[in-house]
Measured scan of single mutants.
Amino acid sequence: TPAEQLLSKCPWKEYKSDSGKPYYYNSQTKESRWAKPKELEDLEGYQNTIV
């Protein structure tokens, strides 16, 4: 779907730490963070409005 294509192009991906806590990693900037990036939230919100 178009929304899945947008998400696949987003540099932010969700991973799980050893303790199972989700964290987010940007493959372009090599940045990681615990809080979900706004860019990823926006894309997921867009995906939910299409489905």
Rank of each mutant, 00 (worst) to 15 (best):
P22V: 12
N26V: 01
W12V: 06
T29F: 00
E31P: 00
P22Y: 07
K36C: 03
K38W: 10
T29N: 07
N48K: 11
C10Y: 08
P11K: 01
S27Y: 10
Y24K: 05
S8K: 02
E44L: 07
P11A: 14
P11C: 12
K13E: 09
Y46T: 13
T1E: 00
Q28E: 05
S19P: 01
Y23P: 02
K13C: 03
S32E: 07
K13P: 00
K9N: 08
E14T: 01
G20V: 00
W12A: 08
E14L: 06
E4L: 07
D18Y: 08
L7G: 15
N48F: 01
Y24C: 00
A35F: 06
N48V: 00
S8Y: 06
G45F: 14
R33Y: 05
Y15R: 12
K38D: 04
E14I: 14
E44G: 10
Q47I: 08
V51D: 15
A35Q: 13
P37M: 01
L6M: 15
K9T: 06
P37V: 02
N48P: 09
S19I: 00
K36A: 04
Q28N: 15
L43R: 12
L43N: 09
Q28T: 08
R33A: 08
Q5I: 05
S8C: 08
S32D: 02
T49V: 05
G45C: 09
G45K: 15
N26S: 00
T29Y: 01
L6I: 10
K38M: 06
C10Q: 15
K9S: 12
W34G: 11
G45Q: 09
E39S: 10
Y23E: 01
K36R: 11
P37A: 05
E4C: 03
E44T: 06
A3M: 15
K36M: 12
L43W: 15
L43C: 08
Y25W: 05
Q5P: 05
S27H: 01
Y15K: 10
Y25G: 02
K38A: 06
S19D: 08
L40R: 04
G20S: 03
K21V: 08
A3L: 12
P22K: 10
S27R: 04
K38F: 04
Q5R: 11
T29P: 00
G45V: 12
S27M: 15
Q5A: 13
K21Q: 10
A35M: 11
K21C: 04
K36H: 04
P37W: 00
K36W: 03
K16W: 10
N26F: 00
K30Q: 09
Q47H: 05
K9V: 05
E39K: 02
V51Y: 05
S32H: 11
T29L: 02
